[in-house]
Design a protein around this nucleic acid. Structure first.
Lengths: 197, 197
DNA sequence: AGTATTTCCTGATTTAGGTCAAGCCCCTTC
DNA sequence: GAAGGGGCTTGACCTAAATCAGGAAATACT
């Protein structure tokens, strides 16, 4: 079995008991793709044909508002799915841009293969149900956090929640993810280190 | 078939082709419950044993922060599911409160029945996958909106998205849902009516 | 009908965080 | 090793929305 699929199958096995037989079938639906740092996987206005599973590297999805500001929607590193969901599901134009923050390898799953896979391998139906279910619970708390917490709380909570990824991200991207300005993050960092001494 | 189930089955049929036979089985897993206005379905700290489908009325889920402010997470009226998802799925203490804004009838589905139903009726596995998938897409756009838009944009977008429900909600609840103060909503309304004359 | 409780409005003041601007440091890349 | 471009910091200033406070409408309760 190809090396890159290990990450995917570990992720699946974590949620449902997948057999070697199923793995073979599942594999056949995916296509592998490599991306250089800064390379687009999807641009606003395109039709989003795939959902992608990151096996190596780091990606982001983001929107651009009228003033030209980028707002990061999601980071996806090893073991995460990324896509313009609304576009993928409902078939409309993508509102999101997706690009690589580091050199990245992804496994692409097209709409047709997604549907096919779900019917042919019922276990995968269950896998995605569980996956979505969990992300819903996560999204809920992010939303609450975005509405209720202060800038400082958002920042420290982000670092607590994703300690490993903090290192890999320039702080202006974290700012964009949290809906804060880079300057604010900078000031918060200063304040925190000052308090700790 | 009991009347209250109509709303549920319409909702299901909208996503997957459910048979009369399946309906019988599905029905058996639910329990019906009536709630008076202001009555709790779940309080913070309880174990969330159910997800609930609203067949009539209007409910909300909300958190309370350290300062005692309520932040509404979700409104659920006819045809919506409501629950403390994280709690229901992972079995930990509820962080959300859920109560009735109007007199409400819900159909309760316990964790055990949920799991049982999903295995016994594979079609329901698919239904929930599609349901979650769609809510994910919706949540995404609400999150982006919470981060990027101004108070006025959030308010008008809310009314555009849920025109029917605007009437049924006092505006302090809308404010709480949008993460704004009631005063701000009041001023926005004033501004809008002034502009329109 | 009359009281109580929400709900809503409006003004004055405060504040968190954004915006603008300038300079520095650290990588790349010729 | 110079030149350029990100990324980060810091200061001065600004603004959207929160908070505080008071009263007016509107609902609900007996």
């Amino acid at each position: 079995m190809e090396q890159v699929f290990n990450v995917l199958f570990e992720h699946i096995a974590d949620k449902v008991p997948i057999t070697e037989r199923d793995k073979e079938v599942v594999m056949s639906f995916f296509r592998r793709k490599k991306l250089r740092k800064r390379q687009y996987l999807l641009q606003e206005g395109d039709v989003c044909k795939y959902i992608s599973f990151v096996t190596e590297g780091l990606m982001r999805s983001y929107t651009v508002d009228e003033k030209g500001n980028e707002h990061i929607n999601l980071f996806a590193w090893e073991g995460w799915w990324i896509s313009d969901f609304a576009g993928f599901i409902f078939g409309n134009e993508a509102k999101l841009n997706i690009d690589a923050i580091e050199d990245t390898t992804v496994l692409l799953l097209s709409v047709e293969n997604y549907e096919k896979m779900l019917t042919e391998v019922p276990l995968m139906e269950r896998y995605f149900r569980v996956l979505y279910q969990n992300s819903l619970a996560t999204k809920d708390s992010r939303l609450i956090s975005a509405i209720t917490h202060t800038a400082e709380e958002k920042y420290t909570m982000f670092l607590d929640t994703y300690p490993s990824i903090g290192q890999r991200l320039p702080q202006n991207l974290i700012a964009s993810y949290l809906g804060l300005s880079p300057e604010t993050i900078s000031r918060i960092k200063k304040k925190i280190t000052e308090t700790n001494t």
